[in-house]
Simulated scan of single mutants.
Amino acid sequence: MIRYTLRCPDDHRFESWFASAEAFETLQASGMVACPDCGSAQVEKSLMTPGVRTARKAAAPPAPAEEKTAQTAPAERPLAAPSSELEAKLAELRRHVEKTSDYVGLGFAAEARRMHDGEIPHRSIYGEAKPDEARKLIEDGVPVAPLPFRPTRKSN
Rank of each mutant, 00 (worst) to 15 (best):
S30W: 08
S30L: 14
V33H: 09
A34D: 09
C38A: 09
S40P: 07
V43K: 05
E44V: 13
E44D: 12
E44R: 08
T49H: 05
P50W: 10
R56L: 13
R56N: 06
K57Y: 08
A60V: 10
A60F: 07
A60T: 15
A60W: 06
A60K: 13
A63Q: 12
A63R: 10
P64I: 05
E66V: 12
E67I: 09
K68C: 07
K68M: 14
A70R: 12
Q71I: 03
Q71C: 08
T72F: 05
A73V: 02
A75E: 02
L79V: 04
A80M: 10
L86H: 13
A88G: 09
L90V: 15
E92M: 03
E92Q: 10
R94L: 01
R95A: 15
R95F: 12
E98F: 05
E98C: 10
K99T: 15
K99M: 09
T100R: 06
Y103I: 00
G105R: 00
F108I: 03
A109W: 10
A109L: 02
A110M: 10
A112L: 09
A112G: 04
M115V: 04
I120Q: 11
P121M: 02
P121K: 01
H122N: 10
H122W: 13
S124M: 05
Y126E: 01
A129N: 04
P131E: 01
D132W: 06
A134C: 09
K136T: 14
E139H: 00
G141E: 03
V142R: 01
V142Q: 00
